[in-house]
């Protein structure tokens, strides 16, 4: 099948994300890339655990002083829901329903933005109320690096999905751009899974002590 071909609902294959060799390669390559990303985050998690609550003086804030469950809960719900909306988007992509896919992707982006907003608020809260900064202690460095790396992934994912949406807004789905949308949504799920671990390891375990 040719990637450039004009598509109709009837001709649209069942797995548009891997119907050409280029698409298959992209699909597999991206999964492998996520494998590498997993080791990247695993290293960051290990570093965080080793440096958790390692501060220079007794009056510095520790994990149990910092974290606040309601706020983290809101952030978590925003991001988890955005993963769900991106699933809907891919569902419509597979059914060649371009408009619907765009709507759900739009929602995904909004939810992602909401998540980033809470994160920015959260960080500035720690900095101003607790003087817990990137440079204040090893704990601070490790915390902002782990959570910030994740936040940067979210920001990158948002830019990526947005530019795909803008680029393809006028021309609809094709076998050339279907894998691009699909891979971006895979990335989005990955970010979500990482957050689940951050939520557990950093926030829940942090509050327990």
């Amino acid at each position: 099948m040719q990637a450039e071909e004009k598509m109709t609902y009837e001709k649209w294959p069942a797995a548009p994300e891997k119907s050409t060799l280029e698409a298959k390669n992209k699909f597999l390559g991206f999964w492998l890339f996520l494998g590498g990303e997993t080791t990247l985050f695993a290293s960051l998690f290990a570093t965080y655990l080793a440096l958790k609550d390692k501060v220079p003086s007794a009056d510095a804030a520790l994990a149990k002083d910092l974290f606040d469950l309601p706020l983290t809960f809101v952030a978590t719900m925003l991001l988890l829901t955005s993963s769900l909306t991106s699933v809907y988007a891919m569902y419509h992509m597979k059914n060649f329903a371009f408009k619907k896919m765009m709507v759900w992707l739009g929602l995904t982006v909004l939810l992602g933005l909401g998540f980033l907003g809470t994160e920015v608020y959260e960080f500035s809260h720690y900095v101003h109320t607790y003087k817990h900064t990137f440079t204040s202690s090893a704990f601070g460095s490790a915390f902002y690096t782990l959570v910030g790396f994740h936040g940067a992934h979210v920001a990158f994912g948002l830019c990526w999905i947005l530019s795909l949406m803008i680029r393809n807004s006028k021309r609809g789905l094709s076998l050339y751009n279907a894998p691009k949308f699909y891979v971006a949504s895979l990335y989005w799920h990955f970010i979500d899974v990482v957050w689940v671990f951050i939520f557990t390891v950093v926030y829940l375990m942090g509050m327990v002590g």
């Binding site: 290990a46 440096l51 390692k54 202690s137 090893a138």
Partner: peptide, 20 residues
Amino acid sequence: FDRLFGANFFEVAMGGNTVI
């Protein structure tokens, strides 16, 4: 981050750990 942006991963006095 440690050398250029003021982080403390390996600064023992700030709670860091070089074995990492």
